[in-house]
Amino acid sequence: MRLSQAWVVARHELRQLRQRRGILVGLIAFPVGVGLGFPALVDLQLVPHGGPDPGSWAPMYLNAFAFWFVIGAASLPTTIASYSIVGEKVSKSLEPLLATPTTDGEILLGKALGALLPTLFAMWLGAALYQGLIDVGTVGAFGYLYYPNWQMAVELFVAAPLVALVAIEASVIISSRVTDFRSAQQYASVLLLPMIIIYVAAEIVLPLNAVNLLLLSGIFALVALALYRVSLRAFRRDEILTRWK
């Protein structure tokens, strides 16, 4: 595996992304929406009008809202990755690509980076916005700066990348089986289900603190590892040229 070769593929993927307006809109709209929407809700509604001593109950909301950056990391890269693979399938450009001195693993890693980097960049940017605005609105009521904290750090630098990786690998596997972008998207959207379940469970049984998030990330890591093997097998050149439809 030559990282420089994978990087050539990744750079090309990032360049292709500029041509896909729909994906770009999502990449900007999601983090900006979450980064502005939740602080607006917290700073203007919850904390001023939600009752006495916000420092005791508001953090629960904040932790739940922050999890949206993990949910985003699970949803955004599926669009990019499926588009990248199904798109090449439709335009038949995989065969010439496979004819170059690039290994299957390098192509796969390049495509994965092409989906992972913009996703993380968007999430981190949105999270910076979110944390700043939350701090500005709550420091008066709390008496201290809520962000940055460990919970957010684990979320952004451990959970989100791992979840994004799982989403990308799943998209690769799904994309190898379908012929159009729409169905790839539909199958990939099933991935959001476990995220929603975690989100709901967080309210009841599993508070999303730094420790629990690390445990969850361990599970994500295991899933990512398992899917890595499957996706690598789905992306063998012999397979792509003779079995993929």
Partner: peptide, 8 residues
């Protein structure tokens, strides 16, 4: 199939 990147 030539398989060019049409948008590039």
């Amino acid at each position: 199939n030539v398989g060019l990147y049409e948008g590039s």
